[in-house]
Amino acid sequence: MNELRDFFHMGGYAVYVWTSYGLAAAVLLANVIHPLLQRRRLFALLARRRRRAARN
């Protein structure tokens, strides 16, 4: 238990170390999610356009 507390405490540098790693995780994740969302939006757009073309 003590070991775990020491780990999160980071020798008193917890704020700096954990902010760095947290931010890195967030930025790396955002760069994966963004293209996925864009891709989904584009597919929806193209499908809508196709349906409209088929109706006319």
């Binding site: 020798g11 008193g12 700096y16 170390v17």
Partner: peptide, 20 residues
């Protein structure tokens, strides 16, 4: 974060290098 030893001068703050 876990296995590498702390730095002789900078202590645990040096672990930021693994991202930086």
């Amino acid at each position: 974060l876990v296995e590498a030893p702390a730095d002789y001068q900078q202590g645990d703050s040096f672990r930021i290098i693994y991202v930086h």
